[in-house]
């Protein structure tokens, strides 16, 4: 039960990360349009809510949700490090772009 739940959670966290304003404008070229951001974010939150709802229906809801919340935090930490790495690589590849972004 935890495995499918954590997949939904991972997907949701990925979507939310992609649609966070800073990541959306820095990680993607061209930057994600505002409307798409909102859409993706809404979908991410929906998935998140769905995963919690599904989890709370299980007969072992307490334990499941505790593990689920812990895993979500872990995903968020890993993804943010991933974003850092991506951004770092991107900047190294394209130093001119970086100057543009900062001006």
């Amino acid at each position: 039960m935890l495995l499918p739940l954590s997949f939904i959670g991972l997907l949701a966290v990925c979507l939310l990360a992609a649609a966070t304003p800073r990541q959306a404008s820095e990680l993607f070229t061209p930057p994600l349009p505002h409307k798409q951001q909102i859409l993706i974010r809404a979908f991410g939150f929906l998935l998140l809510a769905a995963s919690f709802f599904v989890g709370s229906l299980s007969h072992n809801a307490g334990r499941l949700l505790i593990a689920h919340i812990g895993l979500l935090g872990l995903y968020a930490a890993i993804i943010s490090l991933g974003c850092t790495l991506c951004l770092h690589n991107k900047k190294r590849r394209d130093p001119a772009k970086r100057r543009n972004n900062h001006t």
Binding site: T20, R22, G73, A76, A77, S80, C83, T84
Partner: peptide
């Protein structure tokens, strides 16, 4: 939430502090 900017001194410490605090 998903931001960590390393190598920027105090800014990085704050990022790490926020990130660690928020994710867990």
């Amino acid at each position: 939430f998903f931001t960590f900017r390393p190598g920027k001194g105090q800014r990085s410490w704050l990022d790490a502090h926020n990130l660690l605090g928020v994710v867990a």
